[in-house]
Design a protein around this nucleic acid. Structure first.
Length: 492
RNA sequence: CGGGAGGUAGUUCAGCCCGGUAGAAUACCUGGUUUGGGACCAGGGGGUCGCAGGUUCGAAUCCUGUCCUCCCGACCA
């Protein structure tokens, strides 16, 4: 057992790190807070990206690419946005190195190569994009402008964690411009639905849709919509956000258009994004002490086939069956890998692919050939059974769908069990410490109370759920009147 | 950024207190036997001890600085 994984019970954080590192998703790098995404992890991201990209295009968006650098003067144009990100920006101040005269073989920053104006490495791209949109929008005929970009951004976080919070991360950011407020709000909500659809139906992760409180709102937004997921340790994870930006950026960057009546007005904006953080959520929500468990729809390898043989003659017979099967599965668009590497024995491969979270494993040996069957093992339940070679491709197809559905159901059952109402402060604190998860409680609606609760319990308001049930009640902390419950949790 | 732990073979770690030939397991290479849940035997290769200074006849070991990682906290649109 050279690759043992720390159990969740023993050390949840270490368990998470073990899964990422030993599952081959990512590695630490020589750069503080930055990780290397390894081929297996990147294949997972590519699958996620491809699905999302299609969803964006199906809803009328197109891709473009904007610069990594933002001149400081542009960055500071939208005041609240700039202020919100100021503390975590990387800044380029020089453009040249030179030989260090006092240390042979070393380089130093050339003081003569100081930039006139510093460049901010984008922590988000609103500034550079809205500066560009100014030149693209004159008339209502130019609207709506529906653009997405796939990019990297940098946020100089104090404390980083693989995938969940890295100094540099990959994401997509949509930036749209509209003629009316109503249209922009519809867009904001539409993209939230796209995210929820993707995370639930492709990542098998149930989410709660809602809006953020003013405290938790995106810097520069009028309203921030979000989807919140629950991890196995009872902590919440913000899985995606969609912002209604009002006319804030249009005003900051002077983006006006003429409407049908030749009346000038500022455009209405949205922005929305999900990042490689989703991979962290995927890992934390589904995996177990034996390794990753990946949902079939986005798993880099959906089916792995392991041959078991005692001689090259046996191997040849197995190859013949497997090659036909691989051909069949590929024809059905199933991502299949035949691992006939003779360096590793079957038992080793079983453990390895369990660690990597491959949803379905097929083992085939002489015994199976004689009976015209294969052994099929599911990663999610660890169940094994013999299945006839006849119609196996259909069986696999169905099994992948079953696994996908089962993973979602399991995560949803856990999430639902961990949504609890609290009506007294004692219950609230007790639930946070023992049961954990989402807690539905009344709140008096003030930022001060929210802040106080965070201070006392480390729990934040994750969101005010959409279409929230209205009911009379009293605030969990202050006892003041409240009209609805909001969703509290400790969060990543 | 504060507190704690750590960095020695590809990996996990011992050695450090008390300075004196760089170690184990595993992985890797070769050959053979194996193969239905992380195989076994024999042989072999692999290290600027994170980096930079200092003390010393001599530093993985002592001292100073620095970089990186993990855990807890603060921060986190």
């Amino acid at each position: 057992m050279s690759k043992e994984i720390t159990s969740r019970e023993k050390d949840y954080s270490q368990w998470y790190n073990d899964l990422i590192l030993k599952g081959g998703l990512a590695d630490y790098s020589a750069v503080r807070g930055c990780m290397v995404i390894k081929p297996y992890g990147f294949a997972l991201w590519e699958n996620m990206r491809d699905v999302l990209d299609k969803m964006f295009k199906d809803t009328g968006h197109v891709n473009a690419y904007f610069p990594l650098f933002v001149p400081k003067s542009l960055f500071e144009a939208e005041e609240k946005n700039a202020e919100g990100f100021a503390k975590e920006c990387a800044i380029v101040t020089h453009y040249r190195l030179k030989n260090d005269p006092s240390a042979k073989g070393k380089l130093m920053v050339d003081p003569e190569a100081k930039l006139e104006e510093e460049l901010v490495v984008r922590p988000t791209s609103e500034a550079i994009i809205w500066n560009t949109y100014k030149g693209w929008i004159q008339s209502y005929r130019d609207l709506p402008l529906l653009i997405n970009q796939w990019a990297n951004v940098v946020r100089w976080e104090m404390r980083t964690r693989l995938f969940l919070r890295t100094a540099e991360f990959l994401w997509q950011e949509g930036h749209t411009a509209h003629a009316t407020k109503e249209e922009a709000i519809i867009e904001t909500e539409k993209m939230l639905d796209v995210y929820a659809d993707f995370v639930e139906n492709w990542m098998a992760l149930p989410v709660i849709k809602g809006i953020k409180t003013p405290n938790e709102r995106f810097a520069g937004a009028e309203e921030t919509y979000c989807i919140e997921a629950l991890m196995q340790d009872g902590k919440a994870l913000q899985a995606g956000t969609s912002h209604f930006l009002g006319q804030n950026f249009a005003k900051a960057f002077d983006v006006k258009f003429s409407d049908k009546n030749n009346k000038l007005d500022f455009v209405w904006a949205t922005s929305w994004g999900v990042s490689t953080r989703l991979i962290g959520g995927l890992v934390m929500a589904h995996s177990d002490d034996d390794g990753l468990i990946l949902p079939p729809k986005i798993a880099p390898v959906q089916v792995v086939i392991v041959p078991i043989f005692k001689s090259i003659e046996e191997k040849a017979l197995i190859d013949e069956k497997v090659n036909a099967l691989v051909h069949q599965l590929k024809a059905n668009n199933i991502r299949v890998k035949y691992d006939d590497n003779d360096n590793a024995r079957p038992g080793w491969k079983f453990a390895e692919y369990e660690m990597k979270g491959v949803p379905v494993r097929i083992a085939i040996g002489a015994r199976d050939l004689a009976n015209h069957v294969v052994e099929i093992a599911r990663r999610d339940t660890k169940e094994k059974q013999s299945v006839s070679l006849d119609g196996l491709d259909i069986y696999i197809q169905n099994l992948l769908e079953t696994v996908q559905q089962n993973m979602f159901n399991k995560a949803k059952a856990y999430r639902d069990e961990h949504c609890t109402n609290a009506d007294t402060w004692e219950d609230f604190v007790q639930l946070l410490d023992t049961k954990t998860g989402f807690i539905n409680a009344h709140w008096d609606g003030t930022p001060e109370t929210e802040e106080k609760i965070k201070e006392l319990t480390k729990a934040t308001i994750r969101c005010i759920p959409l279409h929230n049930k209205q009911e009379e009640g009293t605030c969990i902390l202050t006892g003041k009147p409240s009209k609805q419950r909001v969703l509290f949790a400790r969060a990543y």
